[in-house]
Write a protein that binds this DNA or RNA. Structure first.
Length: 177
DNA sequence: CCCTGATTCGC
DNA sequence: GCGAATCAGG
């Protein structure tokens, strides 16, 4: 990927807009957050809400510990019944268009009440490993995302996975004898 | 642990 | 100039 003027321009915009390097990298595509940061520095755009740090420690140029094997074991498992689509929850579809309609929406959001521990993440804070379950009404200020930790393989935290992937009424086995 | 930006250095 | 590797902080 080359830094075309358009890409650089977008980079500047997003950077000044407050997006993180990884967010910008994801937006641009084809680059890592390191590339973004490197480019930002080369452009002299750095120094965004960052205290001056003239002092700099001499880093070690050559020092690679041969021993570095450390097994990481963290296996989260979500009960995903194979076969049910996650579209089960159509509660709050993102509507980018502002609807002039009164939108009474008397419907309650029981989910929001059941999940008071949500981190209230904004859409910009969502990553591969944060729960993307929408909570509240998108047309109000009370709208946010769960934001709780989740596996990269699933869009929701363990709690919301259970809701999203729950096969409606839990398919009761017919008591056929 | 995950994330963030900062810096270095081989290419 | 570019960006991975690395460092350092939250």
């Amino acid at each position: 990927m080359t830094w075309t003027t358009e890409r650089v321009d977008l980079l500047k915009k997003l950077w000044s807009d407050g997006l993180s390097a990884s967010q910008i990298a994801g937006e641009l595509g084809g680059v890592t957050r390191n590339a973004v940061i490197g480019k930002v520095h080369r452009l002299g755009l750095s120094g965004r809400a960052k205290a001056p740090a003239p002092q700099q420690k001499p880093r070690r140029p050559v020092s690679k510990p041969a021993s570095g094997l450390s097994g990481g074991s963290s296996a989260h498992s979500y009960s995903r019944g194979g076969g049910s689509a996650p579209q089960t929850h159509g509660a709050t579809a993102l509507k980018m268009e502002t609807s002039p309609a009164p939108a009474p929406a008397p419907k309650e959001q029981p989910v929001a009440e059941l999940v008071p521990m949500a981190k209230k993440a904004t859409i910009l804070q969502l990553t591969e490993r944060t729960c993307k379950w929408p909570i509240g009404d998108p047309s109000t200020e009370d709208f946010y995302f769960c934001g709780n930790p989740s596996d990269p393989s699933v869009p929701y935290c363990a709690y919301h996975c259970r809701i999203a992937y729950q096969p409606a009424t839990d398919r009761k086995r017919r008591a056929a004898g």
